[in-house]
Write a protein that binds this DNA or RNA. Structure first.
Lengths: 117, 117
DNA sequence: GTCCATTTGTCCGTATGTATA
DNA sequence: GTATACATACGGACAAATGGA
């Protein structure tokens, strides 16, 4: 797996990676994910980062964590449609719009600097 | 305020305390909460613990955090779901996609110009 | 029942990144 | 440029739940 996109925080990249793994059947419904320590070691991140990634998946109902046992893929997990509310999508679109606006400004600055040379 | 119940983790106790404060009007809608550093100092906990407490309130939609500004109690206007149609969101996504495509072309041009030097 | 290894949960202190003013 | 504030990450520590020896 890659965690060097740099476009997004490591914990989100890890969450995506795990979600993909679940979607591809690498971690079938009901199965146990590698332990947090194991995931941290594998991906070369701190345990807290793994926890943050797992929280994303928990919030979307993809996995459940059982104290003292492990983290398990929910049997009714639905990777395709992670039950998102319209308002949640709206928020994401707003965030994307804002990010894109800032990125555009940065590109404009680069273009001006480029022209001055 | 007390954080020594010991029956529940400090971050949950702090979340309860803040929720009560909001409910009692100590932090009215639209007002800004004390900064994370301030709350940590006040309640003698680490900033991470304050973050965890605030995340609870964010997840329940009670507050919103604005990067570089602060954490604010949501107003009813904030809480109420904006009436957005799915088609409107789809249109926004199409706009974003087109914007992103153009921006990508500009970055590619910048990259080529950069290599020519 | 006790001990112990494993695993998640939480907390701390610090550091760095990024947004805002 | 400086200051403030939130966001994220790291590493270490201990608590709590689980299950097997």
């Amino acid at each position: 797996m890659r965690l060097d996109d740099d476009s997004r925080p490591p914990y989100q990249q890890l969450a995506d990676s795990l979600r993909d793994g679940i979607g591809r059947g690498e971690f079938p419904p009901g199965s146990q994910l590698p332990s947090i320590a194991e995931l941290a070691e594998r991906h070369q991140v701190a345990k807290g980062t793994v926890q943050a990634a797992l929280r994303v998946l928990r919030d979307s109902g993809l996995v459940v964590a059982r104290h003292g046992k492990g983290v398990f893929v929910r049997t009714d997990a639905n990777v395709e449609e992670p039950e998102v509310s319209l308002s949640a999508v709206v928020r994401q679109v707003q965030d994307l719009t804002e990010h894109l606006r800032r990125l555009t400004e940065r590109v404009e600055e680069l273009e001006q600097a480029s022209r001055r040379q």
